[in-house]
Design a protein around this nucleic acid. Structure first.
Lengths: 152, 152
DNA sequence: TATTACTCTACTAATTCGATAGACTAAGTA
DNA sequence: TACTTAGTCTATCGAATTAGTAGAGTAATA
């Protein structure tokens, strides 16, 4: 399970991705619109900034913006910043390794499966960018409105 | 990341699967061979028993055995017992649901991706049985021995 | 200079996690 | 019957993590 931090981070980033090219967005706006505790969100945005996903501007009219195109930010990258390696088990991680604990990692049938699982997860998360998510969301909203319009 | 409990559980189950059809295996043997703290393993095996994966027999010659064929126990089932739903986020879970927290789950582009990720993970874990893992392991061991033999 | 808005660090309450301890029960065996 | 073996069950504990709060500080703008 992904932590609240991680979930909030992805929601905040999606919020910014939806406003790409527009004026900076304040912490307060994100907090209110995305229903995220303000002081908690501050920390999260700071982490996102340190990780190079967003930039910030102080003072009136300030706020946060994406540091690069939403097409260049994958969900996998962001998840890794907040949750660590995607691997379910350290012996299946590409980055961390060796901290397996199991008696014979080199001939472990389980490890092979953990690696497969990690790969399946990475395949989805690393190939999905925030631009994709923005697009999906607008499709969903269009469909939702259509249904709503129809029901009137 | 999967907890120690979950990792130990899968290792213990693999140990039993490798001895399917043989005499019961004691907690102590599993503990020693798989390098798992004994008293911790007791609890884990109890959980595995309650979940219907293993049976036990007390007294001399007693121990644990698989409750059903290793072909009928998937890694996914076992992981779920110890880690809860496979979904990275509750709004993508088939079992738990509604505890999303996000403002509009019905039109959430992120949720779609979380669901995809859950599906990718489930595809691997639910289709892999402990019989598969036993087989993989013996292939690995055969290969490993072959290399070793060659180097002599 | 007042206001706006991000920055940074410390803290805390609650929960979870990994593990240990110990008393208890059941099944064989001499 | 008594002893031994081996699983059962519950309580506890320390350390780590998590979610969230608090507050003082800095930079930019009007």
């Amino acid at each position: 399970m992904i932590s609240s931090r991680g979930k909030y981070a992805t929601r905040a980033l999606l919020h910014l991705a939806q406003r790409e090219g527009q004026a900076p967005v304040s912490i307060q706006e994100i907090s209110e619109r995305q229903v995220i505790p303000l002081k908690f969100l501050e920390q999260i945005l700071l982490t996102l900034k340190q990780a190079g996903f967003v930039t910030s501007r102080k003072g009136p009219g300030g706020g946060y913006q994406l540091a690069k195109s939403a097409t260049k930010i994958s969900l996998g990258e962001v998840v890794r910043v907040f949750e660590g390696p995607l691997a379910l088990v350290s012996c299946a991680s590409v980055t961390r390794f060796g901290e397996c604990g199991c008696p014979h990692p080199e001939v472990c049938g389980l490890r092979e499966v953990w690696i497969e699982a990690r790969h399946a997860l990475a395949q989805v998360l690393d190939l999905t960018t925030f631009a994709d998510i923005v697009q999906r969301q607008s499709h969903l909203e269009a469909g939702h409105h259509a249904i709503h319009d129809f029901s009137i």
